[in-house]
Amino acid sequence: MGISDILFYVFAAMTLSCAALVIANPFSRNPVTSAMFLVLTIVSMAGLFVLLHAFFLAAVQILVYAGAVIVLFLFVIMLLDLKAEARRKIKFYGLAAGVISVGAIVAIFARNLRSTPLHALASPTAQGGTTALGLLLFRQYVLPFEVISVLLLVAMVGVILLSRKDSK
């Protein structure tokens, strides 16, 4: 058991416990707390990406999620005054429905994971450095890259249109 295995278990435990605290924190119902634990989840997932040698994606994960998406979440949380929301309780039937459906899907996952022979491809080889990904992105995937930039432009125009003061 090498150092990377130990780091994997540390980052995996951090990811899962912080994700659990995002969806149900026993001490606080405040959305700001959820957003802060989402930052921790994202950062420890970037650690998992580094362990998988996906260095470029780890950097993008921290820049885009922790740097942009969470800041957007925090802006909106502070824009909407959510003090009344913090006091609402989780409904019992919601919890029961959630546990039943998640239990069903976890059972399907576990069954598939156990019945699939994964050992045949258990030799880690791929290196996700910036050079390799950049070559692939700008040669083979250049059309999807341009399409996704148009998508970002459409999203920007849509956001400006939606958040105007008097959109009739």
């Binding site: 969806i23 919601g94 976890v106």
Partner: peptide, 22 residues
Amino acid sequence: FALFALGLLGVIMRRNLLVIYM
């Protein structure tokens, strides 16, 4: 899979739109 299950549980269980987004 565990992370996906936690996210699904949050979407079904929580009633706040922002937490559902997270």
